[in-house]
Amino acid sequence: MAIPRVIPVLLLKNNGLVKTTQFKEPKYVGDPLNAVKIFNEKEVDELIFLDILATPENKKPPLEFLKQVAEECFMPLSYGGGIRSVDEIRDILKVGVEKVIINSHAVENPDFVKQAVERYGSSTICISIDVKKNFWGKYEIHTRAGKHNTKIDPVKFAQDMDAAGAGEIMINSIDRDGTMKGYDAELIKKITAAVGMPVIACGGAASVNDLSIAINDCGASAVAAGSMFVFHGKHRAVLISYPEQTDLDRIFNQG
């Protein structure tokens, strides 16, 4: 298998960088371009940007910002938030972003994913789903930045996206988001057992050990996290960090 990717997820809100807890209480954590420079110096495997207001407020992708980011970054970049058309995908790729992440619009219009894959290839199209456990412990997909419960089963939907040709899928646990209580291993396992495409685990990571569990025990191909890379200590002081490559090689048994 490829070296598992460890991916900081950066949430954008009105051109600022924020971090949420269970998709609520966005806390301002700094200037996104400054964060990008630091992550570039730390040689992160990949960066994901999600604009959390784009879908709820019906906004266009922040192309000028993404262009600036691409000029600073010598690693793969993904962007998600408010993508509804293949022309928007074209514009995003053109400024130097490698992959687009489709969430709400994939759930609301699965045919769009097929079109996007046909036009730009599997490796460019990443699906993301936000999942929450209901009162009875059943997993359900929520869209529109977690505001709308679709009641759709994430396993079935992930299989549909796999069949539609999506290149990978990111599974974000709303319950674990920002809590730093570890990934939802049960959820990740369910998805990796059901699909052939790479799975990115997201939501809850606090330590290198959490990353190891998602990869080695749950079968994820990549791990994403927010709080772990932007907060430090129990008071959640803002400090950007990223694990040492030697530590990652050790937990993933590489080279």
Binding site: A2, I3, P198, A222, Q254, G255
Partner: peptide, 9 residues
Amino acid sequence: PVPHMGWEY
């Protein structure tokens, strides 16, 4: 999985 996507030595 194919496409092969990610970092390799």
